[in-house]
């Protein structure tokens, strides 16, 4: 067992691991998907696979918004930014992601005005600071970042800032889970639900997974003990033949989520019927955003206020 001594509460971790082994028994195989990329990272980093018995298989979900972004979206965003006087603003995570003609960083080296921002509100700040240019924020992320983009757009509208637009690549997690469950190749017993996405959307949006699909789901924190406790909660449900939504991450995730954040997203974004997820050819999922065309020739892309209303 690697690392365990470095963790907080190592004794409790050992006990929890023991409980997992007891519950899992040897008769059957369990396939659990962790939806969130943060959990995948934690599982690898903490070596949790070594702690879990062999008959518990953790399947990695689609939960990395950068990884699932199709190359065409980067190409489209960069082609807009090739127009004169456009600033391409994006999170640092996007800077090395390749498009057909290279990454945003490579475009910057070729003369494009590319800026790293760490917050959508700083992309708006760039627009205020550069009134003669148009700032296009290349927005990306699940529900942890989408409300911030939404509120920023509302602020831009309220301030009457016209030189700011959002190229929306935000994606929502629920349609992805639905597509996974609809896939005939994907046999899963249970889900480890995303932690921080759930601070925004709460636990209710998962209820259909339990009620209609009869799969248990536990919203989980990111510490080793959190993930192991979530596995215990899932095993208990599976052993009892139950399927419920449970919240292991109560200390951070309210059952109802963050209503102000949900409201901001509902006011600004529209769900698309389809959006491609790179590497997940088995499904095309919905994403939130709009393809409303904009004035001044920025076709099929930058969602520019007040065009989204």
């Amino acid at each position: 067992m690697r690392f365990v001594d470095e963790f907080r509460e190592p004794e409790l971790i050992s006990k929890t691991a023991e409980e997992i082994r007891r519950l899992a028994g040897r008769e059957r195989h369990y396939r659990m998907m962790e939806v969130c990329g943060g959990h995948t990272h934690a599982i690898y980093r903490f070596g949790l696979k070594d702690i879990l018995p062999e008959n518990i298989e953790l399947i990695h979900g689609p939960g990395c918004p950068v990884c699932v972004l199709p190359m065409g979206r980067i190409d489209d965003g960069l082609s807009i930014a090739q127009q004169p006087d456009v600033i391409f603003a994006a999170f640092g995570d996007m800077m090395r992601v390749p498009g057909t003609q290279g990454s945003p960083l490579e475009h910057k080296a070729r003369g494009m005005d590319v800026r790293i921002v760490y917050s959508p509100s700083d992309a708006l700040k760039l627009a205020r600071l550069n009134p003669d240019k148009h700032v296009m924020f290349f927005a990306i992320g699940f529900e942890t970042t989408a409300p911030s983009t939404a509120l920023t757009m509302m602020r831009a509208k309220a301030e009457g800032i016209r030189n700011f637009s959002v190229f929306c690549n935000h994606v929502t997690i629920i349609p992805a889970i639905r597509a996974i469950l609809d896939s005939p190749d994907m046999r899963l017993d249970a889900f480890i639900g995303p932690g921080h996405v759930s601070t925004v959307i709460g636990c209710r949006p998962y209820e259909w997974i339990a009620q209609n699909e009869r799969k248990p789901i536990v919203v989980s924190g990111f510490e080793p003990l959190d993930i192991l406790q979530s596995v215990v909660m899932l095993l208990r449900q599976l052993k009892a033949g139950e399927a419920r939504v449970e919240n292991q991450y109560k200390r951070v995730v309210p059952w109802e989520g963050n209503r102000a954040a949900l409201k901001a997203m509902a006011q600004v974004f529209q769900l698309r019927p389809y959006f491609e997820w790179r590497g997940w050819d088995l499904f095309r999922s919905r994403h939130c955003g709009s393809t409303t065309s904009t004035p001044n020739g920025m076709r099929n892309s930058a969602l520019r206020f007040p065009a989204s209303a």
Binding site: Y118, S119, S121, G141, T144, T145, S148, E223, R251
Partner: peptide
């Protein structure tokens, strides 16, 4: 608070912040 991309997204306890 827990901060995502410059926005406070949830209130947490001091202990949870340390964790």
């Amino acid at each position: 608070v827990l901060i995502h991309v410059g926005f406070a997204m949830s209130k947490i306890s001091e202990q949870d912040a340390a964790d």
